[in-house]
Nucleic acid binder design. Sequence first.
DNA 1: ATGGGTGCAAAGGATTTGCAACATT
DNA 2: AATGTTGCAAATCCTTTGCACCCAT
Lengths: 139, 139
Amino acid sequence: MVSRAELKEELIKAGIRPSVQRLAIFEYVRRSCQHPTAEVVYEALRDELGSLSLTTVYNTLKLFVDAGLIMMLTIDDTFRCFDGNRSNHAHFRCNDCGKIIDLGMKKDFLSMVEGVEGLAVNEAQLYLKGLCGECKKKK
Amino acid sequence: MVSRAELKEELIKAGIRPSVQRLAIFEYVRRSCQHPTAEVVYEALRDELGSLSLTTVYNTLKLFVDAGLIMMLTIDDTFRCFDGNRSNHAHFRCNDCGKIIDLGMKKDFLSMVEGVEGLAVNEAQLYLKGLCGECKKKK
DNA sequence: ATGGGTGCAAAGGATTTGCAACATT
DNA sequence: AATGTTGCAAATCCTTTGCACCCAT
C-alpha cells in the first residue's frame, strides 16, 4: 500500500500544497475501492479531521481531477463519484443495487475504436451497465 | 433516412403513444448528429410545434431512455445530452471546443475487458476525451 | 505580513415534481 | 367520460462562488 509520505510527495510534485485536509482527502480516495462521492468523503473524514467542510471536499476533489491525480466518474447520471485507482480499467454499474465494480482492461483496447487517428486522446472511460452476479440470481 | 411513419411505429411498438410532441422530439433526436441537450431540443422545436414546454422535453427524453429508444450521454459532467444513433459506437469529446464526435467501434470490444463473466452487460459506453484535430493544430 | 487554504452562507443551474388544464379515445 | 399528456410554477438537489477568517511560511 502507498504510504502517507508517498502520497504527500505526489501532491507536491503536482504543485499542490499538502494541507491536512488535502492529504486526508487524497489518501481516502486513493485507498478507497468504493468510488466515493464528495458527500461520502466528507462524512468519512469530518470526525477524523475535526474540521472539514463539504465545500473544501468539493474544491479539493476538483483540484485533484484537474491535476490528473484522480478521475471523476459520471457512470451514474444522478451523482458524480471519484476514483483514485490509476490503472487502466473499466467500470460496471449494476442497475439494480447501484454497485460500481472495477474491471481490468487490456492496454490496446483503443484498437477497437475506428477513427481516432486525427485525435489526441488523453483520457478514456468505459462504462458498462447491467446486472451484477447477485442481482442476476435474484431475478 | 427513417420516415416519420416508421418512427411513429417504433414508438407504438415500445408502448409509447405517439403524441405530436413525442414524435417531433423522437424524430429530432434520431436524426440529429449533434447530441443535443434537452434545452437544445426545446429551442429547436418550440417554434415548429407552436406549443412545447421544457418540462415535456425532459419527461419525454426520460421516457425514451427508459424504453431504450435513445441513449443518455454523460460524457460531459456539466450537462446531459442525448443520442439517437443506435449503432455500436464510442464518443469523443474535445476538451477545448466541447465538440462531441461519434466513432465506430468493433463488435467484440468487450473482449478487451477482463472479468465480465459473471455480469449481465446490456449497455456499454466508451468515452474518449482529448483534443480534436482542429484544436490540436491551434495549440 | 503575505499568500494561500478553509468554510460558512448564499447563489446558481439543471432536472424533477405537483397539479390543473387539455387532448384524444 | 375516462385516461393519458402537457406545461406552468415551484421545489429539489448537487455543486460552485463570494467573502471573511485563519494558518503557515
